[in-house]
């Protein structure tokens, strides 16, 4: 449901940093503005961002699933339980300032989700690694961000093995919250210990393959960073700086 969606849009072909910069820019913009209308303009921009990559349909569903519960709670928290003045919507009194607040917070949420789910869908992890390598990003950073994701499925498989083994010995995962809490020890301890036992081999294997090498690594297929890419990223930067200048200076003066 969530992840890279192969495609041929301009954003897919762009340098991997460009969609990430746009998404970050949209996040910062969502917090730079505070009027409900302006926030939803940012949401619209995020939707446009998704549409231009041809992934609007793909990201809309997870975005809605993630946002809906919070929207409902925001509506109750601020709309129904908010302060005066109220308007009557049928039998319920709905707070006007609360409703506006709910629109602002709900909008920010929607903008962030749409923006980053789109970035996630358009940036191929392999190209991102190549781009970071070509830029000389320190190995440790690339390693932690990318290689951890390949460890997670293996660790999850081990959780399943441990659960099976402990269930054979009478561990029960159901029952009261307290019983479920108690099941955690026999699960977490073997998981962590077995993972720690592999640390030395992993470090040695990395060591013999140049893990500690200083200097720039060779990128085999470095993505092209075109003039358009750089222009877009500069435009994002300028827009964000302008928005915050307006927020903190313009509003006062």
């Amino acid at each position: 449901m969530i992840g890279y969606v192969p495609g041929a849009s301009a954003l897919h072909r762009a340098h991997p940093y460009t969609p990430l910069a746009i998404a970050t820019g949209l996040l910062l913009m969502a917090f730079a503005v505070s009027a409900p209308g302006a926030v939803w303009v940012v949401v619209a921009a995020a939707a446009l961002f998704a549409a231009s990559a041809g992934v609007l349909g793909t990201v809309l569903r997870p975005a809605a699933i993630l946002a809906l519960p919070t929207w409902v709670l925001l509506t109750i928290l601020h709309g129904l339980l908010g302060g005066a003045p109220h308007v009557m919507l049928g039998p319920v009194a709905f707070s006007v300032p609360g409703g506006e607040r709910a629109l602002v917070f709900g909008g920010r949420l929607a903008a962030i989700l749409l923006a980053f789910l789109t970035a996630l869908a358009t940036v191929s992890p392999a190209r991102l690694v190549e781009a970071m390598t070509a830029r000389g990003v320190p190995f440790g950073r690339v390693y932690l961000l990318v290689s951890t994701l390949t460890v997670v499925p293996r660790l999850r498989a081990r959780v399943r093995q441990i659960v099976d083994a402990q269930q054979c010995r009478g561990l029960r995962l159901g029952g009261s919250p307290l019983a479920r809490l108690r099941a955690l020890g026999p699960l977490v301890v073997p998981l962590v210990l077995s993972a720690l036992a592999e640390v030395d081999e992993q470090a040695l294997a990395l060591d013999v393959r140049g893990g500690t090498a200083r200097g720039r690594r060779t990128a085999l297929e470095p993505p092209e960073d075109s003039r358009a890419d750089r222009a877009v990223r500069l435009a994002v930067l300028v827009a964000v700086v302008a928005a915050y200048a307006w927020k903190f200076l313009g509003a006062g003066g």
């Binding site: 390598t133 951890t148 393959r209």
Partner: peptide
Amino acid sequence: GLATTVRAEVAFGPAS
């Protein structure tokens, strides 16, 4: 854990 292809995995060392 960085490579999505076998080639990239094998190339990691010399590329480093």
